[in-house]
Each structure stands twice: as C-alpha cells, then as structure tokens.
Amino acid sequence: MADRHSWPAPALPPARATRRQALAALGAAAAACSPLAARAAPTTLQCAGAYADSLFHTRNLQQFARQASQSSQGAVQVEVVANAKLMPMKQVLAALGSGDLAMGEIFMSNFAQELPLLGVDSLPFIVRSFDDAKRLWNVTRQPISALLHKQGIRVLYTAPWPGQGLYARAPVNRLEDLKGQKLRVNNGATTFMAKAAGATPVDIPANNLARAIQDGEVDAMVTSSTTGVDSQSWNALGVFVDMRAWIPKNLVLMSEKRWAALPETARQALQAAASDAEARGWQLAQDADDAAQRILASHGTKITQPSYELRRSLDLLGERFARDWSGKVGVDGARVLIDYYAGAHKG
C-alpha cells in the first residue's frame, strides 16, 4: 500500500491575470522579439572641448558629434563638453593616451614643448594665406599622426584660426617703424620681433588687452582679426597690417584604445564626420576672418597688406625661426619644411 505522503500535493489554481497585466506581458514579449531589442546599446564618447559654445570651433565640433551619431544610426553618441569643463587642455593628451578620455580638442602649438614637431604650427612668417597653411598641414599630417599614434592617440581632424596680423597706431612700412614703441609679446616669435625692431616688449594677457589698449599701454600687437574685434583695437590702434604671421590650428583627437573598441561601422561614421568637419572648419575660419575684418573696417581701422620692405624683413625672421626649429626637431622637422617649400615652387 502506497504511502499517502508520496503523492504530490495538488497545485493551486493560478491567479486570474488582470487585463492590465495581460497587456503588459504581451508588450514585453513583443519588445523582446523586436529588432530593436537585438541592437546593442549606443557607445557614448565624451569629448573635452576647449572653448565656449559660441566659438566657431565649438559649433563645428558639435556638428561633428551630431553627424557621427546620425551616420552610425545612433550606435555612437559623442558628448561634447565645451569650455574645458571636462578637463583643462593641458591634461588632454595624457588622458587620451591612457584611454581615460575618448576625445579631446587641443591648440596644437601649446604642446610643442613636449612634442616639438607640433611647433611647426606656430612658426612665424612661413605661411601667407589659408592655402599655404593648408599645404603645410598636408605635408605635416602624416608625421604628426605617426608621432601621436606612438602616444596612443589618433588624429580625427584639424581646423585653423584666423591669421595673425599687426595692429599699430600708425602705418608700419618697415620693421624699424616699430622702434621705441610698446609691442605686446605673447610668444618667442613676437619677442624676437620686438628685439629686431628695437621695440619695447610688454606682456599683457588677452583678458586685459582691451583695457591696456585704451590706457595706452600698447602701441602695437600681433594677433588675429577676431581678437582685434574682441579687444576693440580701434579705440587706439587704427592700423591693421594683414600679414598672416602664422595661422595656428586646433587638433581634434581620439584615444586609440577607445577607437579600437568600436565596431567598424562606428569607425567609418566617425571618420566620415571628421572629414566633413575638417573641410567645414577651414571655411569657418576664413569666414570668421572676413567678418572680423569687415567689423574692423566699419570702425575706421585702416587695413593694409605688408609693404615689400616689411615683408622681406619678416621673411628673414621666418627663415631664422625655421632653421632653429628644424635643428631642435631633427630630420622630421627638416623634411616637412623641405616638402612644404618644394610644394610652393611647384605651385
């Protein structure tokens, strides 16, 4: 006789599902079968932007981020954190190299001390136009990309700033016309220029420039058309010599570690967006330069091109700086300058 306790106890009847519960279950089942459920969650990449939202460089960076997201169908989301709020620019290269940061924006020549090849961007009196600056970038892209690759960093794109011109109280047709004047200096090139001209070098930060001009602390300065507008140079410096002393650039970079972790489709989307951002960035810089010069002229600034004698003096200064720089950088530096000047002769 079987033990009565060996029989399983009858199961309790299931509780009757409510209409709301039934619909929720059907919805969950449908979602699980949807193609969207199989799609991987988007990869978010933070980008350390260096400048304010209103600046054309930041607007270009934000458009790059939107395009990358759209082209990847949402697989990649680039989050631009502007105005150095994510981290100071000086920390960007190290963070990219370690993979702690996905993307970042730098002013190229700011890192010339640790990576001397990047100093080519601020060599004075080498380029005379945006076309020259673009040609210089074309011959330096590969060696700079290779140099940064060794640091674990990938170049996405570059975009320039407006060229640096000479502001003065009176016309400057020769370098000697600056003799005895207070020339604002902010790097080695302008310091040497002051000494060569017999001018008195004065160091004034950009945020105090408008007041210094108004108070007569500056007789001349080398800076961009856009900075001239920001500092209201027309209050005292009524001449602008559009000499394009140098045309510096920003680099937008990505961690190689973070790049390697992305699927090929996401990489292609980022590369295509970067290519468009570079083309757009060069045009935006020229547009900003043109707009700033129109504003300067509307306030009575006399805009001129360098005289033959002034240009010749500046060219000689440029040759000296180029020799000194290539001596520090070595073979790579000499090669890019040779390639740049060879291209000029072909043109």
Results as ranks from 00 to 15, higher is better:
D3R: 14
R20H: 07
R20K: 12
L23Q: 09
A24Q: 14
A32Y: 13
A32E: 13
L36A: 09
T44R: 13
G49I: 04
A52R: 15
A52I: 15
N60M: 01
Q70F: 11
A75F: 09
Q77F: 09
A82E: 08
M87L: 15
M87N: 01
A94P: 02
G97A: 00
G97F: 07
F107C: 01
F107T: 11
S109D: 14
N110E: 14
E114H: 07
R135S: 14
N138I: 04
H149A: 09
I153T: 03
R154V: 03
V155F: 04
L156S: 01
Y157G: 00
A159T: 15
G163T: 09
R174A: 02
L175H: 02
R184C: 02
V185L: 07
V185R: 06
M193N: 02
A194G: 01
P205A: 08
E217C: 02
D219W: 13
V222I: 10
T223N: 08
S224M: 05
G228N: 02
N235M: 08
G238A: 09
K249Q: 15
V252F: 11
K257N: 01
R258L: 03
A260G: 05
P263F: 08
Q271T: 14
A285H: 06
A288W: 00
D289Y: 01
D289M: 05
T304N: 10
Y308M: 08
W325R: 05
K328H: 09
D332N: 09
L337S: 08
